[in-house]
């Protein structure tokens, strides 16, 4: 084990995207919890959000615990968020679109039920 008192370094750019050797798609904007953030076409919702350093994507309905990206391949359903007003959408399997509205889901989330 490396030095056990090693503290976690902060990333100054506040952007976790790898820059070297990669040219991304068109830059777009998505709205996460009311704030506009930068995203690139082709990215998953989870990738665009994790790139900002935010890793808690929802809270559970019984014990209100935070959850994030776990399996990243669409089988665990832990990374679900409310996307364009539909709760329980897997952030790892959904790709960003310009203007997409994403919310950190609380519990079962809020549905728009009126016809």
């Amino acid at each position: 084990m490396k030095d056990t008192n090693h503290t976690i370094k902060t990333i100054s750019s506040n952007d976790y995207r790898i820059q070297e050797g990669i040219a991304r798609g068109t830059e777009i904007e998505i709205i996460v919890d009311g704030k506009s953030i930068k995203a690139y076409e082709g990215e998953s919702v989870a990738a665009s959000i994790l790139a900002t350093g935010k890793r808690s994507l929802r809270t559970t309905s019984k014990s209100y615990e935070p959850r994030g990206l776990y399996c990243a391949i669409g089988i665990c359903f832990d990374c679900v968020m409310t996307i364009d007003n539909i709760p329980n959408i897997r952030a790892c399997q959904t790709f960003v679109r310009n203007g997409m509205i994403i919310e950190t889901q609380q519990g079962e989330g809020k549905w728009r039920v009126e016809p």
Binding site: R17, I18, I22, E65, P66, R67, G68, Y70
Partner: peptide
């Protein structure tokens, strides 16, 4: 179940497709 705990397969696939740490 804490955010930041992932599977190795998930980590690998995430970095090789999304290029995000």
């Amino acid at each position: 179940t804490l955010p930041g705990v992932m599977t190795v397969g998930g980590v690998k696939s995430f970095i090789k497709t999304m290029f995000v740490k």
